[in-house]
Computed example of a mutant assay.
Amino acid sequence: MAEEVKLYGTWVSPFSRRIELALKLKGVPFEYIGVDLSNKSPELLKYNPIHKKIPVLVHNGKSIVESLIILEYIDDTWKNNPILPRDPHQRAVARFWAKFIDEKLLATGMKASLAEGKEKELLNEEILEQMKLLENELNGKDFFGGEAIGLVDIVATVVAFWFPVSHEVLGVEVITQEKFPVLLKWIGKLQEIDVVSQSRPPREKHVAHVRARMEGLNSGSK
């Protein structure tokens, strides 16, 4: 009997895109179902009744939610092309950095996008400090996972592809050769992997979306 795998997500979400990438790295066939978060479907509410958010992975009728949990579920279920190390300490380290990206770096980025004046300056400095920690962790390696893409690389695609789009719209360049040579080299290596390119939003569409969103925020704050 064929396995049924469905992914509920949105095209611009780094959280659902990371699940798409993990499934593609594993070679798992799946059905992608786009969700309109302004008009949530009965299916989404059925499969994620508590948070009512994407991504949701449905495997043979059973739902798994929260992207970091889904990534571990995928790795536990399909053993080929592992995305988490087997060594317990290395697994713990990978989990730490994945949570750091979501709970520290992304959270600070969200605050900075809504802040103004001195608060915004301080938050932007904090983002640079947090990215420097990532740079140091990656130093000496091709990928956070070592020689191959792993959990932290998948989660950090938000830094590789979502951050630069936001910075382009804002008219600033953050990930430069001068500031972050290791991260910049890593982004280049990621772009050479076909499934990575397939699992990110189309750049022009992404830029237009972020620009429209930021213009909406700015007009609402006047």
Rank of each mutant, 00 (worst) to 15 (best):
Y73A: 08
I74E: 06
I74S: 07
D75W: 03
D75S: 12
D75K: 09
D76T: 09
D76K: 15
W78V: 06
W78A: 05
P82V: 04
P82W: 03
L84S: 10
P85Q: 11
R86P: 00
D87V: 01
D87H: 04
R91L: 00
R91F: 00
A92L: 08
R95A: 00
W97D: 08
W97K: 10
F100E: 02
I101H: 11
D102C: 07
D102N: 13
D102P: 13
K104E: 11
A107H: 08
T108P: 14
G109H: 03
K111D: 08
K111I: 07
K111V: 07
L114M: 14
A115Q: 04
E116R: 14
E116I: 14
E116Y: 13
E116Q: 15
G117M: 04
K118Y: 07
K118D: 12
E119Y: 04
K120T: 05
E121C: 07
L122E: 13
L123W: 12
L123E: 00
L123N: 04
L123Q: 06
E125G: 15
E125D: 13
I127L: 07
L128S: 13
L128R: 13
Q130G: 14
Q130N: 11
K132E: 14
K132D: 13
L133C: 05
E135D: 06
E135Q: 02
E137G: 03
L138T: 03
N139V: 11
G140W: 02
K141M: 05
K141Q: 05
D142V: 04
D142R: 11
F143T: 04
F143Y: 15
F144E: 06
F144N: 10
G145M: 04
G145P: 08
E147R: 05
E147C: 06
E147G: 03
A148Q: 15
G150K: 06
G150W: 05
G150C: 09
G150F: 10
L151T: 06
V152T: 08
I154V: 10
T157F: 14
T157Y: 13
T157I: 07
V158W: 12
V158I: 15
V158L: 15
V159I: 15
V159L: 13
A160R: 00
A160F: 10
A160G: 10
F163Y: 15
P164Y: 11
P164R: 01
V165T: 10
G171T: 07
G171Q: 05
G171R: 11
V172L: 01
V172G: 01
E173K: 10
E173C: 08
V174C: 01
I175D: 01
I175F: 03
Q177R: 07
E178G: 09
E178Q: 13
E178D: 13
K179W: 01
P181C: 12
P181K: 03
L184D: 10
K185W: 05
W186L: 08
W186H: 10
I187Q: 11
I187K: 11
G188F: 12
K189R: 15
I193R: 14
I193L: 13
D194V: 09
D194R: 15
V196F: 06
S197I: 14
S197D: 04
Q198V: 02
Q198I: 01
Q198C: 01
R200N: 06
P201A: 10
E204T: 09
E204F: 08
E204Y: 03
E204H: 09
K205E: 12
H206L: 03
H206W: 02
H209R: 09
H209E: 02
R211C: 02
A212R: 12
R213G: 00
M214V: 01
E215D: 04
L217T: 01
N218V: 01
